[in-house]
Amino acid sequence: MDTSTAAGATERTTLLRNRPAARRLHATVYLLTAFLAFSGVAVSGEGRPSLEDLLGGHETTAASHRWIGFLLIGVLLLVAAVRPVAIGRFIAESVRIRAREINWFKTWPRFVLRPRRNAPSRHEGHFDPGQRAFNLVVVVSFLALAVSGVVMSLPERFTQKAFAVSFDVHVVATVVLVVAVAGHIAIASGVLNPYRGVGRAMHLGGWVRADLARRLWPRWAEAQERDAPLLRVRTSAHGDTDQASDPEGGGSRRCADKELAAATTAATNAAVPEAIA
């Protein structure tokens, strides 16, 4: 909401970071993963009755864990089947690393602690180097969980030793995934000052402020602003460029979002967007 009428109103823009399909897939994956994490903890070892009772008992919890696991595998395979180019691009963007981008990791702590005085080293990717590392950890973890989970769901098809090894792999992959996701949530939640507002890239419309995008994903932001000007929404704010007090709301912006959404569909269908999804 506008809070002042000072002259020289600042014009801000936002960029569309993730389209609805990507956001739906992201939500589906994390909801299913959250259920799997909860049910897995509930049924692990000799079981935790207080948690298992919430899901209908020990055997029901174990069965639902197996079948939701199969469902998640099916969803990801289906996405890979119907959007192979997007998946290939996601993998390619995630594994691509340039020697000079290693410096990004060195400058990141300073950027997090004092964002107004420090910017992270420039990188050339769709994902910043930290995101790429996270993507790889998640993909490898999911693969390990899927394979070990399938083995454990078919105990009579495999040896006892194979089950035991799969169990250990499943536990280790779970711990790795949980740690990675915890960091991901911490950053996406905006708890860290320089990332305030970045969560909107995957929720509440998929938009991200252009100034934030320029700091986090400079090459991607430049490409968006150069190649797809229709993806910008111009909103008028009064003299406020501080991330910490960004009002970010208002009916005028939501109306503009709806109008732009229609234009965006036409523009992005014609263009070759770098955004994955």
Partner: peptide, 8 residues
């Protein structure tokens, strides 16, 4: 009797 994956 239950299997290792808790299937009875």
């Amino acid at each position: 009797l239950a299997q290792a994956n808790h299937e009875e």
